[in-house]
Design a protein around this nucleic acid. Sequence first.
DNA 1: GGCAGTAATTGACATAGGTCAATTTATGAA
DNA 2: TTCATAAATTGACCTATGTCAATTACTGCC
Lengths: 198, 198
Amino acid sequence: MTGNKHTAQITDLLQTVFDKAVSLNTLMKIQELSTIQSFQKGEIILYEGDRATAIFLILRGIVRGYYIDEQGNDITKCFSCEKEFFATEGFRTGGESTFTIECIRDCVCLKLSYSIIRELIQEDAAFSQQVGLLFEREVGRLEARQKLFSLYDATDRYRFFCREYPALIKRVPLKHIASFLGVRPSTLSRLRKKEIVS
Amino acid sequence: MTGNKHTAQITDLLQTVFDKAVSLNTLMKIQELSTIQSFQKGEIILYEGDRATAIFLILRGIVRGYYIDEQGNDITKCFSCEKEFFATEGFRTGGESTFTIECIRDCVCLKLSYSIIRELIQEDAAFSQQVGLLFEREVGRLEARQKLFSLYDATDRYRFFCREYPALIKRVPLKHIASFLGVRPSTLSRLRKKEIVS
DNA sequence: GGCAGTAATTGACATAGGTCAATTTATGAA
DNA sequence: TTCATAAATTGACCTATGTCAATTACTGCC
């Protein structure tokens, strides 16, 4: 599945995604050592309980992370789409993933193995800094999400979702958006109707 | 405020708090280079918008992190008590804190400046690993909290709080626990009554 | 193109938790 | 100890969201 015709676009993407401080040499190495992997809609990239060995950069498609709660409900905890990274816990700890990653659309991803990342961290201080920032950003995202749930009702959370993820609204089944927002599908359906009218 | 009589207890505490892989030499350096700082109940350790320069290990007392929402409500976002670290964002980024840290009880803390930590990270790989773990644990805590809000109602969240923070229930004003749990003080008061009866 | 299995919509109803205001209880300074 | 202020409790009422079930609309496969 490793195709060469997209090489130029990938170079562009890497330059967009990483800070300019990261050396061109590092970016080239990433491109050289990473692999392109395609998945079909519905395919599982990583199961809850498995240990991850790589992080992914999405070139095309959408993935979601989800877990099954005590009542057996499927709860979506995150979405990622084009030009975003996705990963699970365990880069440092080596621990098991607490959630499953599934493709909601056909996907093409750049797969960056942990070993390559660890190697590049050693070589390039700016890259190491970037990886640290990815962690800090994750913390920021989680805090923002927490705030959303602490302070706002379902309507506001849905509005936020529409603002934050406009690309997903029409490409993701309603039930996944609902569990992500912490409401029932029926409630989200009603919210949608209200919002469209007003 | 740096007293020597507690030296032995602090050594003990540091050994409890850090993994055994961290060298004794590092622990001694921490003890030597850190300072002990006392705060009175109600004192602010760090204001939202300021840049932190240190992390703290609580020897005695309780602190809370909070921010003011758009409606002017004081929202508690975290508690820390004895033998726990507290810190804000910005160790890597140097960014401003998004919340204020206040003492809810008289506090005695061990203050570890960023510069010392950065130095020790260079010298002791096990210590560096520990700092990475502190970050990962923070992510874990945030995810758990998010789950709590996505899946459980106010009653369950309060039960969880009682299990998770038994030391705080009677030492922290109800209104702070309420905002931490995302409910109104009146609601928490009623929950409490219900729980005591059953 | 029809059929089976999901997903989404909608209605009727129940209820957790919010709002607002009054009252009681704690807390801390003089 | 008293007084002033803030915190907690409680009641009456309201509303957002959940529950459950029926109906309709998609989606993909033969």
